[in-house]
């Protein structure tokens, strides 16, 4: 097959990346915060930053759209659009999280946690549905984004609790597990892209950042977190460093996936065939509203 013309997409810039970065961390933090706060109310020191992060991500998307005052149209297509689903979940999630901070209701907290999981999952599926970008449509991107959101949320929760003088010790083993899982998801993602013959430029971009992302963003914080359990006297600074690196690693990986490895499918000469084609009817035969 002859392939050519794969260039880096410029349709979604740093603002879109910001939604995946802040939204992922925010929803991850909210999931962890609901677990920490059970049976309620939601701990405001974790809940409020999570709400702000998710809101900031959505605000960045709003800044990117070409017709910002039509933003309500984003809710029109829940049948198939993961963007509509993300927006719809966010509309429920943000007020519910605020209510969960005020009212000590188990069901409210549980619903907030479930919606935060749904939000994170929607973000991952938004990328996977982008068929024009091989590095996004790869199914292995879904676990990577979800695990990364959880890792970032855990890291941020530890940082917040440590700064508040009450480090949550249960986050330490969880961070170790999540860092190992994220490292594996990253390696698996890259291998899947190579197997799928993603554009060489995208693979090269991921390769360039690999030492920083896998080494600096996963292996090093994993070693630091393990060292923290072995060295009780240095536990706090080691865990603090591990959490910071885990957070930065997640943010950088999303920036790289969305802004550096997002090469378009390009054009191709396909496999030659002979004979009358099998005709597939259009999936949705929707009349054109402008034609009588």
């Amino acid at each position: 097959m002859i392939r050519f013309g794969s260039t880096l997409q410029n349709y979604w810039d740093w603002r879109a990346a910001g939604n995946f970065i802040f939204g992922g961390t925010g929803s991850g933090l909210l999931i962890l915060a609901t677990l920490m706060s059970w049976p309620g109310p939601l701990e405001p020191a974790a809940g409020l930053p999570a709400v702000v992060l998710i809101g900031l991500g959505l605000f960045l998307v709003w800044l990117e759209i070409g017709r910002p005052w039509r933003f309500l149209h984003v809710f029109f297509h829940p049948q198939t659009s993961w963007m509509t689903r993300e927006g719809s979940v966010a509309v429920l999630l943000l007020p519910l999280a605020l209510l969960a901070i005020v009212f000590a209701q188990g069901w409210l907290l549980a619903l907030t946690g479930v919606l935060a999981i749904a939000f994170l999952y929607c973000q991952a599926r938004i990328l996977q549905a982008s068929k024009g970008i091989p590095a996004w449509r790869e199914p292995a991107v879904v676990p990577l984004i979800v695990i990364s959101g959880l890792t970032e949320g855990t890291a941020l929760l530890f940082l917040i609790s440590a700064v508040a003088g009450q480090p949550q010790s249960w986050t330490e083993p969880l961070l170790v597990i999540l860092l190992a899982a994220r490292g594996y998801a990253w390696v698996r993602y890259r291998a899947a892209l190579t197997a799928a013959e993603a554009p060489a430029e995208a693979l090269a971009a991921l390769g360039r950042f690999n030492p920083l992302l896998l080494g600096g963003g996963n292996v090093l914080p994993l070693v630091l977190a393990l060292a923290a359990t072995a060295l009780p006297t240095q536990q706090l600074p080691l865990m603090f460093s591990a959490a910071l690196l885990a957070l930065a690693g997640g943010w950088l990986s999303k920036f790289v996936i969305i802004r550096k490895a997002a090469h378009l499918q390009g054009y191709a000469v396909g496999r030659l065939r002979r004979g009358r084609p099998q005709i597939r009817p259009p999936v949705r035969r929707k009349p054109d509203r402008f034609v009588s």
């Binding site: 997409q9 759209i65 070409g66 017709r67 149209h73 024009g132 499918q265």
Partner: peptide
């Protein structure tokens, strides 16, 4: 259309 560009990254 809101100009979100999602169709642009979805179009191969």
């Amino acid at each position: 259309c809101i100009g979100c560009g999602y169709c642009m990254v979805a179009c191969p």
